[in-house]
Nucleic acid binder design. Structure first.
Length: 695
RNA sequence: UGCGGGAUAGGGUAGCGGUAGCCCACAGGGCUCAUAUCCCCGAGGCCCAGGUUCGACUCCUGGUCCCGCAACCA
């Protein structure tokens, strides 16, 4: 990669994190794709040759598990979502140059090439490791098929990631007290040979890399924690059927597939390759972007610009594992990683299973233009910030900033020009306005080079803001009769400002930019226009314009809120139910005990002979319990629930080999079993003789 | 306990060492080309306590309070 400003002489590629093909898309996913699409369009806008690629992530345990549950093949299962994604993205004006998937031939081949290359260069090592195995299900338990305790922080964790605690990536065999998620039974650790990518080979490289990598602060800082510590080798194989077969030729590895995080990012390369295959290397050569001869070349200026847009949860994979994978195979390194924040719904985290989400289809079904959503996501706040989606704020921002400001300026300018001049007045743009447009262009370029995508979008809206002030200040409607020349000047300026808006807003709102472009009577496509076109006069004639944006009425918002509210409330009720149930019942113990431990408890059927309160104690009672062979005196905290006078004659269970204790001066030689805070006494269902052992 | 992210006007959101900006809502004024739109003007703000500094919303220390972290999930 180079560190030259965009546009550079090299081709660029923009990628977005692969959507995992096991569920519908929602606004959370869409934020990333919209961000990536905007970045790619903005790069083209400044003249950077850019490919925008992505693909569906088809492999991994969750898909295998979900497919099995539905009784279909993993491929069919994943493919269905893949097709859904491929259809949905264009509806949000997210237009990939190539959208593949990790199970297609190109990716399978490319992935194997990567791995072979690692093997040839001695970056792969075999190790006998302990792998979780479910003896009941008679199968290995990769990744999420096992859960247990995180060895680093002690929290409950999944087999591949400490999702609740420290967020670390966990290697196979690391999770403690493994439990099979298939059967709920304790899993065993068994010896198994697996393949590892020797990340330690790349430690020095990664430390240099992270210093020169560009992008958002979270992506640049978070990986340091891992890179500066000692890097552990990455296990790149799994005991599964679903995935890409390990390419080595030893028999041991025959039934291993590659870890999903191996073939997933390689799809970035594969997808770019497919793009080249389609358009030809003269048009776009994937090798110029992705390949590099040696490490010394990496910092040179002749390499392609790789920009990854991801969610902030997968920074480690992209800033640590992925650059090592690339380097190990002799590939180029990312120039920048942009990690977006998450999306919340009405102030709460979105949750697919609780249906607290705004789904992609849902948004489209409501009939809203995709560009409105794009604007909300891109210009709502900085890329790294978690952003909240609410219909109230959606309407507020659409009505205030798009309808009132940008849309209104364009409409009033073009309408005035059309009525009075049939189009663009025949005069030059004033210096002030020219300067202002140039400033907006500069800001657009500066923002893009700092990866401030938000400000890329803001450039157009701020220009429209200026336009409204300008037209208001100059009041051309008063000049048409008195000073037609001056009126022509003002409107000429406004028309130019409107055209500049179209050019500058295109990355964020490509559809609306095209509409405005057409209204200006421009030939060709706004997507092909360059930044300099913002200063070129629009056609001398154009027709009557239309309103660019429609106001979202209050009733509409109420309606949408109610819909969402109902769902959120339902979800919250469910949650409360869960919580209250959980509050009453103590959580089940994670620790399992052996049968021998159980055998250590000597529990006997007994009968209460005597029950009397203990002086000075609130809850304690002294009991004499007949357990057949003898009568025991025990102290029990059962006064609050039981009428002591009625207890004699009641049968109970007594733990006979409990340590002796003295309470309030009374010796307790055993322990009565009772349930819960209310001390509900345990007894027998039938009439086992006194002294019978409970077993 | 832990990990991560926050706390800026009534609500949102920028700034992150040098006069605290923008959007919505609110008060007043103006315009009428424009979709009851637009323009001007006003009131109103940096969680608390220390420290570093010529200067701190911005850096440091210590609090307080919020949010996310079962499965799903970017």
């Amino acid at each position: 990669m180079s560190h030259e400003e965009f546009p550079t002489d090299n081709p660029a590629v923009v990628t977005v994190g692969l959507p995992y093909a096991n569920g519908d898309l929602h606004v959370g996913h869409l934020r990333g794709y919209v961000t990536g699409d905007t970045a790619a369009r903005a790069l083209r806008r400044v003249g950077q040759q850019t490919a925008f690629v992505c693909g569906s992530d088809m492999h991994g345990t969750p898909i295998a598990v979900n497919a099995a549950e539905e009784g279909v093949s993993p491929e069919a299962f994943a493919m269905e979502y893949h097709e859904e994604y491929a259809e949905t993205f264009p509806k949000f004006n997210v237009e990939f140059d190539n959208y593949g998937h990790t199970h297609d031939e190109t990716n399978v081949e490319t992935t194997r090439e990567f791995v072979r290359s690692w093997i040839d260069d001695d970056h792969v090592v075999e190790k006998e490791i302990q792998v979780a195995y479910d003896p009941d299900a008679d199968q290995w338990l990769p990744d999420r098929l096992v859960e247990g305790t995180c060895p680093y922080c002690g929290e409950h964790a999944r087999g591949d990631e400490c999702d609740e605690g420290c967020q670390r990536h966990l290697e196979p065999g690391e999770v403690e007290d493994p439990v099979s998620t298939l059967t709920g039974n304790p899993a065993e650790y068994r010896e198994r040979e697996h393949k590892f990518l020797r990340l330690s080979h790349f430690q020095d490289y990664l430390q240099d890399f992270i210093d020169r990598m560009e992008g958002t602060d979270n992506a640049k800082n978070q990986p340091r924690e891992w890179i500066e510590g000692e890097l552990q080798d990455l296990c790149i194989t799994r005991d599964m059927d679903w995935g890409i077969d390990y390419p080595g030729d030893d028999e041991e590895a025959e039934d291993l597939v590659l870890y999903v995080w191996v073939d997933a990012p390689i799809e970035y390369v594969s997808s770019t390759k497919q793009y080249t295959e389609r358009v030809g290397a003269e048009e776009y050569d994937w090798e110029e972007v992705w390949t590099v001869e040696d490490e010394a070349e990496l910092t040179g200026e002749d390499n392609g610009e790789i920009v990854h847009v991801i969610g902030r949860d997968i920074i480690q994979h992209h800033a640590v594992f992925w650059p090592a994978m690339l380097r190990g195979a002799g590939y180029n390194e990312p120039r920048a990683i942009l990690a977006t924040g998450f999306v919340g719904i009405d102030g709460k985290a979105l949750s697919t299973s609780r249906n607290r989400a705004v789904w992609a289809d849902e948004y489209l079904d409501e009939g809203f233009h995709p560009d409105l959503f794009r604007y909300y996501m891109i210009d709502g706040s900085g890329m790294e910030t978690d952003v909240d989606f609410s219909w109230d704020r959606f309407a507020e921002r659409v009505n205030g900033e798009l309808v009132g400001n940008l849309g209104n300026f364009a409409y009033r300018s073009l309408l005035f020009a059309h009525r009075n001049f049939d189009g663009t007045p025949d005069t030059e743009v004033s210096d002030d306005v020219r300067d202002r447009i140039e400033t907006a262009i500069d800001e657009f370029e500066a923002a893009l080079n700092d990866y401030r995508i938000r400000d890329v979008g803001a450039a157009a809206v701020e220009l429209a803001d200026f336009g409204n002030e300008y037209i208001q200040r100059n009041e051309p409607w008063k000049l048409t009769d008195d000073d037609p020349e001056e009126a022509a000047q003002v409107i000429r300026d406004c028309v130019q400002l409107a055209k500049a808006c179209a050019v500058l807003m295109q990355p964020v709102m490509p559809g609306k930019a095209a509409d405005l472009w057409d209204q200006l009577g421009e030939d060709g496509s706004v997507h092909e226009a360059s930044l300099d076109d913002a200063l070129v006069a629009p056609p001398a004639e154009f027709g009557e314009p239309d309103e660019l944006f429609a106001k979202i009425e209050d009733e509409r918002i109420e309606e949408l809120n109610e819909k969402l509210q109902e769902r959120v409330e339902e979800a919250t009720e469910d949650e409360d139910d869960d919580e209250s149930a959980a509050a009453d019942i103590e959580a089940l113990a994670d620790e399992r005990i052996g049968f021998e431990d159980f055998g250590d408890l000597d529990m006997r059927v007994g009968q209460i002979e005597v029950a009397e309160p203990i002086e000075g104690a609130d809850d304690l009672a002294r009991l004499e319990v007949d357990i057949g062979v003898e009568t025991r005196q025990v102290v029990a905290g059962i006064k609050q629930l039981h009428d002591l006078d009625e207890l004699p004659g009641e049968r109970c269970i007594l733990l006979a080999n409990m340590e002796k204790a003295e309470l309030f001066g009374v010796e307790s030689n055993g322990m009565i079993l009772a349930a819960g805070d209310e001390a509900d006494l345990l007894t027998t269902h039938g009439d086992a003789p006194l002294g019978s052992k409970v077993q």
